[in-house]
Nucleic acid binder design. Sequence first.
RNA 1: GCGCUCGUAGCUCAGUUGGAUAGAGCGGCGGUUUCCUAAACCGCAGGUCGUGGGUUCGAAUCCCGCCGGGCGCGCCA
Length: 619
Amino acid sequence: MSFDPLIILSERFKQAIAAAFPDQPASRDADPLITPGRNPQLADFQSNAAMPLGKALGKPPREIASAILAKLDLTAIAEPFTDASIAGPGFINIRLSAAALAGLLGRLDTPSLGIDLPEHPHRIVVDLCGVNLAKQMHVGHLRSIIIGDALARTLTRLGHTVVRQNHVGDWGLNIAMVTAKAQAEHAAGRLSFSDLSLDDLERLYKLAQRECSADERGLAAALRWWAHPKAVAELETQVTGAREELAKAKATLVRLQAHDPETVAAWQRIADITMRACLETCARLHADVRAEHSAGESSYSEELALVVDDLARRAVAEESNGALVVRCEGIDEPCLIRKSDGGFLYATTDMAAIRRRVQKLGASRVIYCVDIRQGLHFKQIFCAAHKAGYAATPTGPALLEHAGFGMVLGEDGRPYKTRTGENIKLTDLIDEAIERAGAVVAAKSPDLPPAERARIAEVVAIAAIKYADLSNDRARDYVFSFDRMLAFEGNTGPYLLYALARTRSILRKAAEQPGGPPAPTQGAGAPLRLTEKHEKELALALLRYPGALRSVAQSLEPHRLCQYLYDLAGAFSAFYTNCPVLTAQGDATRASRLRLCALTERLLADGLNLLGIETVDRM
RNA sequence: GCGCUCGUAGCUCAGUUGGAUAGAGCGGCGGUUUCCUAAACCGCAGGUCGUGGGUUCGAAUCCCGCCGGGCGCGCCA
């Protein structure tokens, strides 16, 4: 049986509602609408079921509430009902008894912290990171890595099998351009493949982009408006040059597709350099993105023609102005899967990816952690995939979800860039955070050994970056500010690390006393005596953990877990200042409070781990 | 032009899918340390939830109009 008050109360209320109105169909699947009490003064939990039920049955809600209470037996869990139990239009207020609270908390105190395995675990693909070859990782990748990793960790924690997929942009004309450029530079003796950095590659990439983009419109305009012959000549030269470069890139793409060894070797070198840097950065961010998670666009290249033929043959796709499109009801813009020149597009690759993820990897849920501006694109390909049957599983269509995220803005409210308008490299961002965190640690904790201080600065810095990202509504833009995230005040990663460090400090001190058990087992099994207000509130906060995790898994919004952990840390801080632990009056109280500390410690650490945030013992 | 999205305290943001007197943090003012980490805790001030209508017992939340911002709209990814 569950210890989660939300679930227990929901069950009890469901039965009571059914019993109170046995002949009413509306009462059979009425949602008990149990939530934590809006106002802690009035209730620990409340049910809002009476109001909608009153509407459905045409009776006053307070009358409904009385009828529910008459059938409701919560003697083992809650304090007796009073006149105040039914309040306002028909809220039903529930106050858990101290004994019940202690009992429930005791059942949360298991190795898994009360998180039960699901009856039917899912295989879930999480698409995250999504770097491009020959490009530095910048803030545009930050959220995909951080949010995707947190979602993957949370879903894993809930007992699902998660398959991470790094959909690397490693194919297509853009990549062929930089490959061609690198080969040309190599042939000219200006470049050595053996000591090539990602910075070099990015320079080549930009150069190739520029050289391949012809100013056709400029030339047309110049001709139409009888521009100066010299200007026209310059534009003609540019356009001719660009067309040549583009032709070279296309030829390179053909050679890549034909597995030409020399071309593939150059491409592979570019991929290796990029991926090495990518995985290093992910590791610095403590995000679990490894080589085996890479499933680049190149890995689908052989499947694209098959997919397109399949869609055309089964008439899922149709021709339109020479191109092949999939039309979906409710979406005006058709989904292009083949250009009129026969080339494939990124939607083609995404269709192939859905097919593989559901059919080969066995996913019943696919989560795309990608910029929210691609919302229309995902709407299209999800619809197209369903239409094509690619998302079908034996138990019904797989759930395809776009967990889109907003942009990272600077403090001026515009996309976060350097002063010169360049993307900010993630490595620079991380370096700066660590440097700033180091300065604070040195100021606040000068007595700690330098090596430990350095470690703390690193953990705190990454926690600050990630928590700032995760604690904001995923779908919305957020303002990036070192000062705010590293101010160590309020709803920040460092605040949570600090609360956790305080729990550990108490447990450590308790363990240092002669004859005591080691820190992790302090308070283990001690009877919980929840008499003080702050003890009860801490207990209630602890019990809400499973609900918070379920909510994240359903909504794919990690900021709900952040909010929960912040509330928990706040409840602990209040407990900490008001309820002495080591110097508590009486051994029983001391043991009970130690157990509360130990539970808080485990739960905070667990929650932070799900956010992909490492912890420290002291700070 | 069509579509999506946002507008909540001076600033940065929550608001449990329609519920009680709209909450945090920062900033401002004030208080707490011979006592487990003061990177903390407590109190005060600060709001016409962009705006006008509508739906109902009840709206920041749902619907419509308007104002303002952001973004996206077949042959780039």
